[in-house]
Simulated scan of single mutants.
Amino acid sequence: MMLKTKYHGEVDINEAQILKFEGGIPGFVEEKEFAVLPLEENSPFLILQSAATPELAFVVTSPFLFFKDYEFDLDENTVEALRIEDAQQVQIMVILTVQDPFEKTTANLQAPIVVNEVTKQAKQVILNHPSYKTKHSIVQ
């Protein structure tokens, strides 16, 4: 499948790689399908690219690379919606707000993206954790 992207031009991806967001992403409820693409080779940063809207792409990363103590429990509705049967199926990503200079870049720890790697179902969840905000500096 050919996919027009914001950062990579046109790329050929396998449809089996498409993440399905049944309810969309908050603020983009009509956007139901995204591909995860590397930002660049050997980078910890990825691009969450809309399959429908080439201009819509988010820079994401694993929060555990920058926040070693980051943890939360998923509610039963999310576990059921994503058909999670084992914790090993789960990948967590957070959306970054990239700033110039890069040292000012922040991560949204309050609303991680949870992906079932087996079913490719995904959801951005909103946490009610007092320690997690929408803007955490990734440079400590």
Rank of each mutant, 00 (worst) to 15 (best):
residue 73 D to T: 14
residue 98 V to C: 07
residue 62 S to F: 04
residue 32 K to L: 07
residue 16 A to V: 01
residue 127 L to H: 12
residue 97 T to H: 05
residue 123 K to Y: 11
residue 130 P to C: 04
residue 2 M to A: 03
residue 79 V to F: 07
residue 56 L to N: 06
residue 8 H to Y: 02
residue 55 E to G: 05
residue 58 F to V: 03
residue 3 L to W: 01
residue 64 F to Q: 02
residue 68 K to F: 04
residue 87 A to G: 13
residue 35 A to V: 09
residue 84 I to F: 03
residue 97 T to V: 09
residue 92 I to C: 10
residue 107 A to E: 03
residue 9 G to V: 10
residue 86 D to M: 00
residue 59 V to G: 08
residue 36 V to H: 06
residue 122 A to M: 03
residue 53 T to E: 15
residue 117 E to H: 14
residue 113 I to K: 10
residue 93 M to D: 00
residue 38 P to A: 13
residue 45 F to S: 02
residue 90 V to I: 14
residue 105 T to C: 02
residue 103 E to M: 11
residue 101 P to Q: 12
residue 83 R to K: 15
residue 103 E to G: 03
residue 43 S to D: 06
residue 101 P to H: 09
residue 29 V to R: 13
residue 44 P to G: 08
residue 58 F to C: 07
residue 72 F to E: 01
residue 111 A to D: 09
residue 78 T to Q: 13
residue 42 N to D: 15
residue 48 L to R: 06
residue 18 I to W: 01
residue 139 V to D: 05
residue 108 N to M: 07
residue 130 P to S: 07
residue 120 K to N: 09
residue 110 Q to Y: 06
residue 62 S to W: 01
residue 13 I to E: 02
residue 93 M to I: 01
residue 36 V to K: 07
residue 2 M to R: 14
residue 11 V to P: 00
residue 76 E to F: 04
residue 107 A to F: 11
residue 12 D to L: 10
residue 27 G to D: 09
residue 34 F to H: 10
residue 60 V to D: 08
residue 88 Q to R: 14
residue 50 S to D: 12
residue 25 I to G: 05
residue 3 L to F: 10
residue 6 K to M: 10
residue 136 H to T: 01
residue 91 Q to W: 07
residue 31 E to L: 08
residue 88 Q to V: 07
residue 133 K to W: 02
residue 53 T to C: 11
residue 27 G to V: 03
residue 37 L to N: 13
residue 59 V to A: 06
residue 86 D to P: 05
residue 52 A to R: 14
residue 41 E to H: 15
residue 14 N to A: 09
residue 107 A to P: 11
residue 15 E to N: 11
residue 13 I to P: 03
residue 92 I to V: 15
residue 24 G to N: 09
residue 21 F to G: 04
residue 135 K to I: 00
residue 131 S to P: 05
residue 29 V to W: 07
residue 104 K to Q: 15
residue 74 L to E: 06
residue 86 D to Q: 06
residue 27 G to R: 05
residue 126 I to C: 03
residue 27 G to L: 08
residue 14 N to T: 00
residue 138 I to D: 04
residue 45 F to Y: 12
residue 57 A to R: 06
residue 22 E to F: 13
residue 10 E to C: 00
residue 11 V to T: 02
residue 107 A to C: 06
residue 53 T to I: 15
residue 123 K to V: 08
residue 76 E to L: 12
residue 51 A to W: 00
residue 74 L to T: 12
residue 124 Q to N: 09
residue 140 Q to C: 03
residue 73 D to Q: 06
residue 21 F to E: 06
residue 99 Q to E: 14
residue 74 L to C: 04
residue 114 V to N: 08
residue 76 E to T: 10
residue 2 M to L: 13
residue 99 Q to K: 14
residue 95 I to K: 11
residue 67 F to S: 02
residue 138 I to W: 01
residue 70 Y to E: 01
residue 68 K to I: 05
residue 113 I to E: 04
residue 27 G to H: 10
residue 19 L to A: 05
residue 4 K to P: 00
residue 8 H to K: 13
residue 67 F to V: 02
residue 140 Q to G: 12
residue 25 I to D: 05
residue 50 S to G: 13
residue 129 H to R: 03
residue 132 Y to D: 01
residue 90 V to M: 05
residue 111 A to C: 12
residue 106 T to M: 03
residue 46 L to A: 06
residue 57 A to F: 15
residue 57 A to P: 10
residue 23 G to L: 08
residue 4 K to V: 07
residue 87 A to H: 00
residue 132 Y to G: 00
residue 101 P to S: 08
residue 48 L to H: 11
residue 100 D to P: 00
residue 10 E to M: 04
residue 61 T to E: 06
residue 129 H to G: 05
